Simulated scan of single mutants.
Amino acid sequence: MASNREAFVSDCFEWNDGVLVWNPGFRISFFEWEVELISSLRALLEGCYIKRNGEDKRLWIEEPSGTFSVKSFYKSIMPISNPSCSAKRIAEEFGIPLLPAYLVSRSKEQDFRGGANFAVAGGTALDAAFFAERGIEDLSTNYSMGVQLNWFMELLPTLCPDSSNCRDMLRRSLFLMGEFGGNDYSLVYQKGWSTPELHTVVSQITTAISSAVDMLIEHGATTVMVPGTLPIGCFLTIFGRPSKDNYEPLTGCRKDLNELVSYHNQQLQKELDWMRDKHPNAIIIYVDYYNAALPVFGSPYQFGFSKGAFVACCGGGGPYNFNSSAPCGSPWAKAFNNTSLYWNWDGRHPTEAGNRMITTGLIEGPYTIPPITSSCPSLASENVNHPHYE
């Protein structure tokens, strides 16, 4: 299909005023049914971050036969959204329709009037430029919070061409902002940053999240849920086992990283307090993922996770069944049976049962400030259309 079958990746795009523009070039015309597929491919390519002046190469998943194929390459650039997120449980509780993934549905005739899910695995609060300035350019995706907000702004005119109707729609909508921050810390940590160095970017991350909330409210949003970060010190699959002097005896997690997250969440709540002062008519709900999830690590059996909270249900072996060279979804990884017995799905996300445990605490417990049930009583009303954007 390509006009130049011997082309390098660098032959398929150009830099226009610092912006990467893809132009792969095809030698044949497409059937009508193929146009949609090409649009989806272009949308996926837009999120691939290319290093300027870097070595021109692309690595992707090898098929079990030992060969490489276009199919496996396409699979490698497909963004993997976490299918079992807390938003699903919240939607079920309040009768909100489940959300279509925007990135894979925007080239189709998808109706987003009931809401949209902009989340993509690996999304960061800070833009790619922040990491590039610090010598970190090999990002797996460029789907940062800013990119996702731009998608929302692109979608908005199609939902409500009239600005007055738009504000009314946003007033009736529920926004779930993230969770953002965990991927930022994980990314720089794996590049060799120390825990004290991680503390230096907390204010930039929480300010970016707060600014995004501010932008949504300025455009008409009145109900925004903002999650704090999960206890990343308990994801031993990514960050490794704690040393003896860095061990939390009640949970078995890493003390230094959980202290980092606690500080992040404190700073985020301060930012949200400032937003509440600035927008007194808006409902800004802090979602305490950290404390909702933490008890399971000390007593997994109490919550029904007989296989524990650290071991990944789906993985390619290695400590805690996690191997970054054989992640869940690759040909070398496999998922255990009875996923409900595991809290950790793929080393980076909770399982469906894990998310249900967290979200039950959010809805029924003390882990939202102010409580979601008293802040959003109308969400439980029948026959009311409430769009939901994540």
Rank of each mutant, 00 (worst) to 15 (best):
Y263K: 05
H264T: 10
H264R: 11
N265W: 09
Q266P: 00
Q267T: 13
Q267R: 11
L268I: 00
L268K: 09
Q269E: 14
K270Q: 10
K270I: 07
E271K: 01
D273E: 14
M275C: 10
M275V: 14
D277R: 01
D277V: 04
P280K: 02
N281V: 00
N281F: 07
I283G: 10
I283R: 14
I283F: 07
I285A: 07
I285K: 07
Y286T: 00
V287F: 06
V287K: 03
D288P: 01
Y290E: 03
N291G: 12
N291R: 14
A292G: 13
A292T: 06
A292R: 12
A292I: 11
A292Y: 07
A293G: 02
A293H: 02
L294M: 06
L294S: 10
P295Q: 09
P295E: 08
V296S: 13
F297K: 08
G298K: 08
S299K: 09
S299V: 05
S299R: 04
P300E: 06
Q302F: 15
Q302H: 15
Q302G: 09
F303H: 04
F303A: 10
F303T: 00
G304T: 00
F305E: 13
S306H: 03
S306A: 06
S306Y: 04
K307W: 03
K307L: 10
G308A: 13
A309H: 09
A309T: 09
V311S: 11
V311N: 12
V311I: 12
A312R: 01
A312S: 15
C313G: 07
C313M: 12
C313D: 13
C314P: 01
C314K: 07
C314W: 11
G315I: 12
G315V: 03
G316C: 04
G317Y: 02
G318E: 15
Y320I: 06
N321L: 00
F322M: 03
F322P: 01
F322N: 02
N323R: 05
N323K: 05
S325D: 06
S325R: 09
A326R: 11
P327Y: 06
P331Y: 13
P331V: 10
P331T: 06
W332L: 14
A333N: 06
A333R: 03
A333Y: 06
A333F: 06
A333H: 03
A335G: 04
A335Q: 09
N337A: 14
N338S: 15
N338R: 08
S340Y: 13
S340E: 15
L341T: 11
L341C: 05
W343N: 09
N344G: 04
W345E: 06
W345T: 00
D346T: 00
D346N: 01
R348V: 13
R348M: 15
P350L: 05
P350K: 06
P350I: 01
T351F: 05
T351E: 14
T351N: 14
E352I: 03
A353I: 05
A353L: 07
G354W: 02
G354D: 10
N355A: 02
N355Y: 04
R356F: 11
M357P: 04
M357F: 14
T359S: 15
T359E: 15
T359V: 13
T360A: 11
L362W: 02
L362V: 09
I363W: 06
E364H: 11
G365F: 06
P366Y: 07
P366I: 08
T368C: 12
